[in-house]
Amino acid sequence: MRYGYLGPETTFTHQALLQALAVMPEEFVATVEQVPFTAVATATTDLLAGDIDALIAPIENSVEGGVSGTLDVLAATDSITIIAEQIVQVTFVLAAREPTEIADLQVVSSHPHAQAQVQGWLRSNVPGADVATASSTAAAARDLAAMSPQEGRGRAAVCSPLAAEHFGLTVLAEQIEDNAGAQTRFVLVTREGRIPAPTGADKTTLVLQLPHNRSGALLESLEMFNANGVNLSRIESRPLGDFLGRYSFSIDVEGHIEDRRVAAALRALHRICPVVHYLGSYPRIDGARPDLREEFADDTYDEAHAWIEKLTGMVTPQSSN
């Protein structure tokens, strides 16, 4: 089994993969090869081609919101399925090749999402430094460690404590994130099309495209969730890319597709939306169960279905004459 992740080693995505593997049977983990990628889109292409069996990717950050690169890749194909999620606590350090005065730094590099989460600290502590973009926080640390002492003078990386240690960097400052307790959510994706069994504490992810020529289409779609007691835990708009003003909506809801209320909502959406892209139902990592009113329990839907079946069974067949 080959599992892809946004590399190199020690990225937060790699940490999420290690967390996912930690809860799997040891005999399975022993057969897993961890494959680093430079981009989620590249990993997805290899997943669809069969070169890897699964990938893990960041989908949401508690500070920055949705990770657009992952959201767009997931929305672009219906051949992959989310089967699990992981949450990683995010903390950053400022690291250099050798002990350096922070005031002497000229360039600080990191991934754009990390930059956004430490921009206040950087503005206050290294206002004169240029901020450079790296493909990942670990790549920023790795590239800095690979420089000669002369090349690395005046440069630093924003990365995880694990990356700084792994690549032998000197930590100049710890816990430099602007929001303590920040988290990033990751999803584990396969191409098998198998949906994990419901646990009672589940999440379902989908992408909607709305009728573009009907006013109130978004409200109409949201009412389908409300009418069935389905709570949304995330909704984000993403441009379709064909022309301005056209958007899809990436949505997480509480519940599993086998829950009657979730299935009823998806049936209704399938009727009114030109595209309903189902991405998967999977266990919530926090184990939280929805607080349902009695009318949204499975038994209530089953009773209503049986009642209609009984009534339709009483309908007199039309005469063939």
Rank of each mutant, 00 (worst) to 15 (best):
R2W: 02
Y3D: 00
G4C: 06
G7Q: 01
G7T: 05
G7R: 07
T11S: 13
T11H: 08
F12K: 06
F12S: 10
H14V: 02
L18Q: 11
A20M: 04
L21E: 07
A22P: 00
A22N: 09
V29Q: 10
Q34P: 00
P36V: 10
T42F: 06
A43K: 03
T44R: 11
T45C: 05
A49G: 06
D51W: 14
L55K: 01
S62N: 11
V63C: 15
V63A: 15
V67W: 11
S68W: 03
G69M: 08
V73N: 06
L74Y: 08
T77I: 06
V90I: 15
F92T: 04
F92L: 09
P99D: 12
T100W: 09
E101I: 00
V107T: 14
H111T: 01
Q115C: 04
Q119P: 00
D130G: 08
D130V: 10
V131D: 04
V131C: 06
A132E: 14
T137L: 02
M147K: 12
S148Y: 01
G154Q: 05
G154F: 07
R155D: 14
A157P: 00
E165Q: 15
G168E: 12
T170V: 15
V171Y: 12
A173L: 10
E177G: 15
D178R: 09
N179L: 12
A182G: 11
Q183T: 13
Q183D: 07
T184A: 12
R185Y: 03
V187L: 08
L188I: 07
A197F: 01
K203V: 08
T205F: 05
L208F: 06
P211N: 15
H212C: 07
N213D: 12
G216W: 08
S221P: 02
M224F: 05
M224A: 14
F225K: 00
A227Y: 06
A227I: 00
N228M: 02
G229T: 04
S233G: 10
G241R: 12
G241N: 07
E254V: 04
D259G: 10
D259M: 10
D259T: 08
R260T: 01
A263H: 11
A265N: 12
R267C: 07
H270Y: 14
H270M: 11
H270T: 15
I272S: 13
P274K: 03
P274M: 03
V276C: 04
L279K: 09
A288M: 13
D299M: 13
T300W: 02
E303D: 12
W307N: 06
K310N: 12
G313N: 03
P317L: 06
S319E: 13
N321W: 15
